[in-house]
Design a protein around this nucleic acid. Sequence first.
RNA 1: GGGCCGGUAGUUCAACCGGUUAGAGCACCGGCCUGUCACGCCGGAAGUUGCGGGUUCGAGUCCCGUCCGGCCCGCCA
Length: 591
Amino acid sequence: MGSLRRSHRCGEVMSSAVGSEVVLAGWVHRRRDHGGVIFVDLRDKTGLVQIVFRPESTPEAHARAHALRSEWVLMVRGVIERRSDDTINPNLPTGTIEIDVRELRILNSGSVPPFAIEDETDVDEQIRLRHRLHDLRRAPLQRALQIRHDLARAVRESLSSQGFMEIETPILARATPEGARDFLVPSRHHPGQFYALPQSPQIMKQLFMIAGCDRYYQIARCFRDEDQRADRQLEFTQVDLEMSFVGVEEILAVLERVTLEGCQACGVVLPTPFKRITYAEAMGRYGCDKPDTRIQLELVDLTSEFSTSEFKAFRDVVAGGGIVKALPIARADELTRGEIDRLEKFVRKELGAKGLGWIRVEADGSWKSPITKFLGAAETAAIEKRCQVEPGMVILFQADAKDKANAILSRLREDIGRRLGRVDGRAWDPLLVVDFPLFERDEKGQLTYVHQPFVAPVEEDLPLLDTDPQKVRGTHYDVVLNGTELGSGSLRNHRSDVQRKVLAIMGYGPEKMEQSFGFMLDALDTGAPPHGGFAFGFDRWVMKLAGSESLRDVIPFPKSQRGQDLLMEAPSPVDEGQLEELSLRVRLAPV
RNA sequence: GGGCCGGUAGUUCAACCGGUUAGAGCACCGGCCUGUCACGCCGGAAGUUGCGGGUUCGAGUCCCGUCCGGCCCGCCA
């Protein structure tokens, strides 16, 4: 650069007057070389500005400008000029001006970029991840990083002003047998022993409450060695918070405020107060505990109607503890026979459905369907009434285990609802889901926790712990935004006797309880205050605000689905000496 | 662990039923061009068809295996 220093950023040059001299720096976005005059679009994170090289004004700079190539790094000194009316570019915020270059400094050349740096790209994601530095230069990713920053800052401001203190917790923590797989870190000093990266600061934040910190928060990195999804990465960031001497309502108030203020900082105004729905109602109407309620299709439960049906296939499902549910779709002409066949193939192959029952109601009111021949008058009347049958309607059915039938119909509801545009006009749909059950049965029939083992039962349900634990509601709640779970929280058990009872119901004998949770139980006994809190999936929140479909578009250096960093090529083998020092030997499974 | 989709030039795609020398746009390289903004015109170079094996007279194309990317189930909360 020599002694030259930038005076403006490219997108902000309009703040200076026409005729004034400016010094700009950035990357060559595009060069248009007319042999005579040469135009270059100069780009930095703030945008583009056109710089002009004229042979008659600066022959020396002009001569060298022929050699400029995409993604070279320049600094130029020049004068802001107003463009003539016929050369104004209305697509560019700086399109009314250009910079007449007086001096060119080439700060760096660059290799030929693997793909063009443009807002819209159809480049394969594998290529984008391998060339992440070029990908990150694209405006959508720059915007996502800006949103991350704006959101993090707003969250810190909001929580600080509500009396929360940011405290860090260790990254080298202890392995936990519960929950997700741990990432392990070998200890050099303790051969054969390992730290674990935290799956979340859950236990540590409860310890803060017990230690009298009153209100804690942290923007915390979490690690879970589980298979990934579009909305799940191996490492991710949580806005984690915990507070003492509160009930659910106080937490929800904080939650609503920080959600609101966070979104607001990113230009999104959410409607308040947030709607609330119970878990039972969400599952009933939408088949899903994180519904996008902007989609105006709802499920209809016909389980009891089919419990005595002549239709053996459905009746047997009900007899076996399953459910029968329907998804009525009015004005469904678009769902042709071929389309329904495709849906059936989809739910069978992708979601493991047994099939897809359907009824089409013709214009004359007659039913066309492969299942009507099995239906008696009672079921026909029930469907007619419960689904509010009308001409043009298509009704889809699932009879299966409760979770499966709900999952399938919920997915169909979302896909079809979006495709047919059955949405209300709201851009943002925040929702609080409350009254989750505390326990559910695992595959072995044992009661286990739905969310995590420290969730406190709803106080009035405490007696049910002894009589009918499956009916016990937890103090757990989720916040859902546009069909994505942003985060969840609960009150925690602060008395060890209640915690012990909960653990006992989940099959923990005294010994195992002590081994797995003795530390926490002892901590509670030192005088734990009533407390509870919340954790947001920060990356998902950014994803929603950025309008992205994938976490990988809001994380600067994400992992691929198989957990690799394609830029830095992690994970990687390590030197034998490094393993030796850690007392490790690698034994690969026989091929 | 399982299902599905994909992998051809730097990149995005094409290549019929298995058949001649694997083509095109953009990018790249060279030349020309003084008002473009996806500049234009002329020319050129560019390929281990992800990898390995098999079938075949002949494989980008069919079969098996494997690696990689993506979506989903399981898993995860």
